[in-house]
């Protein structure tokens, strides 16, 4: 069922993963040998940078912008669910056999409704972030086509995933909308899906090595 679309979606995901891995290898450069004498623990630095350092008490981009941060977070939760959804749809074709809109199992019903609401809220968040980029003078100043296009692709992907939950979309269109996102992902700013983790790990490791991380205090004292 939807074999062509499924193949396109699969290829797009394989393309995105391979291109990101290639970029990761290239972005690593020659690899850094640190000749200085270690003072702290890089692993603890990495763990810290992915945990405490991301709390509002340690990160001003959150504490000073809680609303925008929450909007961004909700959007990313939606993206994560939609990605899991598209992978499940590709790997387990059997679920396609459930007749639409048949929800015989109440638990299944609740899950589907819940997912729809999360994805709908995430779509709304993506729309808000797109409008912010259009209307904020500062964001316009720093944005290129890629910034607008990327958020529109995300919005489209989230809407497609929401429609797919409601069975408004068949799986075929959902695959196609997903494929567009995955084909573009390694080309523009969406590649931060990978580089967020790598940059944060590298920085945490470096500051851990020097003994800055884990930080000895919170912001307040």
């Amino acid at each position: 069922m939807f074999l062509t679309e499924r193949i396109i979606a699969s290829v797009s995901i394989i393309w995105a993963i391979s291109a990101l891995i290639y970029q990761w290898i290239k972005a690593r450069g020659k690899g850094r040998i640190d000749y200085s004498v270690q003072a702290g623990n890089p692993i603890r630095g990495i763990i810290y940078n992915f945990t405490w350092a991301m709390l509002p008490s340690h990160k001003e981009t959150i504490s000073r912008h809680p609303v925008w941060f929450s909007i961004g977070l909700l959007m990313h939760i939606g993206i994560f669910i939609a990605i899991v959804q598209v992978i499940i749809d590709i790997l387990i074709p059997k679920q396609y056999m459930v007749p639409i809109p048949l929800f015989p199992n109440p638990i299944h019903d609740v899950i589907i409704t819940g997912l729809f609401f999360i994805l709908a809220i995430a779509s709304l968040c993506a729309a808000v972030l797109f409008l912010k980029r259009v209307f904020s003078k500062t964001l316009r100043y720093m944005s290129s086509f890629d910034d607008y296009f990327s958020i529109l692709l995300v919005l489209d992907f989230l809407l497609a995933a929401s429609f797919r939950e409601l069975r408004i979309f068949q799986w075929g269109p959902f695959f196609i909308h997903s494929a567009i996102l995955f084909f573009y992902l390694p080309l523009g700013k969406l590649r931060h899906a990978l580089f967020f983790f790598i940059a944060r790990a590298e920085y945490g490791s470096r500051l851990g090595y020097r003994g800055t991380y884990p930080a000895k205090s919170g912001v307040k004292e």
Binding site: A27, R32, T61, L139, K189, F195, Y203
Partner: peptide, 22 residues
């Protein structure tokens, strides 16, 4: 420079604009 130091951080800024007050 990017060969020696890598370019992870160049790839990661998403231009969210939230860092002004830092």
């Amino acid at each position: 420079v990017i060969n020696a130091l890598g370019s992870y951080h160049m790839h990661s800024c998403v231009r969210c604009g939230l860092c002004g007050e830092t």
